[in-house]
Design a protein around this nucleic acid. Sequence first.
RNA 1: GGGCGGUUAGCUCAGUUGGCUAGAGCGCGUCUUUGACGUAGACGAGGUCAGAGGUUCGACUCCUCUAUCGCCCACCA
Length: 902
Amino acid sequence: MSFTKSYIPGDFEPRIYAEWERTGAFQPKAPVIDSTESDTDNCYSIVMPPPNANGNLHIGHGLTIALEDSLTRYYRLRGKSTWYIPGADHAGFETWVVYERALEKEGHTRFEFDRNELYSRVWNFVEQQRGNMELQVRALGASCAWPDLTFTLDENVISRVYKTFEKMWNDGMIYRGEKLVNFCPKHQTAFADIEVEHEDEDGHLWEIAYQLSTAPDHGTDYNPNIEHTEIIVSTTRPETIFGDTAIAVNPNDERYQDLIGGFVHLPLTDRIIPIVADEHADPSYGTGAVKITPAHDFDDFEVGERHNLERIQVIGEDGRMTAAAGPNYQGLTTEECRQKVLKDLEAQGLLRGEKKIAHSVAHCYKCGTVIEPMLKQQWFIDVKRLAAEAIKHLENNEIKFHPANKKKVLINYLEGLKDWNISRQIPWGIAIPMFRQTETDKVPEWIFDTRTNLTKIEIGGVHYYRDEDTFDTWFSSSHWPIVCTNWEEGMENPYYPLNVMETGADILFAWVARMIMMGVYVTGEVPFREVYLHGLVLDEHGQKMSKSKGNVINPIELVTKYGSDAFRLGILRGRSAGMNQAFSENSVVSGRNLCNKLWNVARFIQGMIDEAHTDSPIAVEIATEEQSADIVNEGAVAAGAELPYSTDNMGEDWICRELTACKEEVEDDFANYRFSEAVETLYSTIWDKYADWFIESQKIYKNIPLLKATLEMILKMLHPFAPFVTEAIWQSLSWTDGLLIVSKWPSRLKFDPISAAQFETLIAIVSEARATSQALSVASKSKKYTLLYDNDALVDDNQLLVAKLAGLPSVMSCEGQPRGLRLALANHDLYLDVPAEVIAKYRNDLEERILAVGRELDTLNARMMNPNYVDKAPAALVKQTREQILEKTALIDRLKLQLSAI
RNA sequence: GGGCGGUUAGCUCAGUUGGCUAGAGCGCGUCUUUGACGUAGACGAGGUCAGAGGUUCGACUCCUCUAUCGCCCACCA
């Protein structure tokens, strides 16, 4: 296969991906369950946080896949049996919202259908929409095991969730309770605390006077203090007044001591309610007296619990006032009711003040509707035991976090965790496997049964009716590592716990915390050994991407435009764990350029090989396993273990040293999840070292076996990040066979360190010659000058190479008679053969140069003058400083000599 | 109120346990058809590392405080 002039991703990506998938390269080598000796060390498992089955991928998914797939490919090359398990989410609420909108468009509402009917309708809807997401995951190059894809409504997920629920039910951790839940009147469902968004808004604080009254049950006046005839409360929600069942004041508030235990008349009603003492009332806020509405406020609910107050629901699930609000108000929206209440209070002279305040209001994260705390019968999990166990394992350092500080944040969250409401009033989800006897309406008897496909079951002649609610999606997704790896009780499973859980830092609480609790509860083990959290991908100005701002970047568009590899390299660049960081197309462009650069390196090498007619089959692998083990044993290659290449000059030793160093850095970066650093290292090794110096020097030397060996090594090292271009090159080269994806991670290269270090010197010489020659060419119209050397073995041995690299016409000995301009190098007598009048133009540059070196010398000297430095700093450092002083001094002397000669 | 993080080049960000002249990509300037690549090559400009104090022979790095931007949790009757 021949190389085109530039790399065109679209020509390769679909074919290559299909080949990987077809040949089973994505499947783990070691089986899951029946492995006789479950060898966890040889297995590597990671799961994909399931994208919405019927949605499209967004930039965050792009980042997720780039991270997870790089890990997967790296460990696959390292020889592990890797299992990257893909998933698809039924996205309970999200999908439901989309579906209900579609239903409305057709002129229907959810209330026309029963739950089962709705469920199957949404199922069909999702089936039709499905597939797009999976194609996009493929386009991003994810090397995941497609046959093992887990859908969040798969049978095994549901049965596992039911097992857990049953276990919890038997353990007494599940209870049904009338509690306040976050309720969205538009979507008609409850939410977990975590799904609610709080926003600061301008609001009003009204002061309302409640007249003191007698106790409802005794006829005597209660009003020992004639100073008080009323008590003024502060509220932001006057419309809930009909649900008031007490007034609370702080027990230590001196103003109200004599009123505690008294009663007031509730305005606009004929009810009498008590005044209670409770810490909840803050004496410094408002009037210090607060009305208590247990059915419509989370704090008031707790006050109500403490004082055994009645809960009166005055706002219905439709967001309108109930009959309990009285005939004048029933049916009004909360806003209408608020206005009417204020007007009526004012008319009675009971409205005593109105202040503007800023307070935070809860909104539905989907539609923005104000969340109404609503009194509902719901299923709850008592989280005490779950949280305590999870904290124990966390404190035992069983999970390593990246970034590390998230462990503390998570423990902090778990310590204050409230009971978990797991019921949702949405048909699209896993049905709660609980049935009740309707006859006993007040205190229904609930039984657990998994026959949720039926709405009614019969046991021993008694009928039971299924609860209509479904599980919170987080309840089922908290089982994700368990269900994806097919974990079963009593069976060894080398893929559980997962090696790593990679996901967004924004769902640390919602998902990661719950997976840990559930993993520990169900399996007794933490579900993963490490957690890597990525931050949000922001737009190029650091703004959050949103449809309304119009700054959303579509990853698939970038893949189409620049290639999958370019996108992956670009999205990983400049990104670190847990941080929200900006992203721009620029970084993708630079990724595309790297792919093209590598492509052209390969194209050039293949060209040289074709020219050299060395297509005869020679050893392809750098070393066999045994040989590589020898190589790893630093230095001594076992006698007889012939390497398929040799290093014949210092550039070759140098590149072997650099590639080996690069390999070790990348390994270290992977071990520590430093993706950005690994990409950076590869980028500069391939571009700045391999292409700019080694390939350039090979235009003279042409060490074909080494070119092959080094190119292979580079392809393997870059493959985890840029799988397509590396595989495309691998398959286009004349001497390679098989697939790169399933090849072996490279071993160290053998090199002579002294020779390698000498090349470093040569680089310094060439750089100096280039810079000086360039400065001169500016002064004298791009003329090139011969480089003369005096008594310099290094340059003498490498005349051709130096001329080539420095772009000079020739390099020759001055035969002991130096002339021209001396290069600013301390230990090498090198001159550009420049006429005197041109040197004169260079005078300013030279003077500046001398000053600069002088400044460096000053700081070095100052350091040595400090006796404490000489005393306390490491000896090696002091020695180094001393050497530098000598070098700089020599240099400055020579430059001065040159200057005086002008 | 509690907790966490950021502040380094024009922009976006690295800088691992304190130690050569603080780096990269993009952008900018000058030059270059050299056996692959102009999606390229060479050279260069650009930084009082937010500020103050402290520890240290030595601080971008560790400690304290301040400023400023942002995130999370709780509360806001």
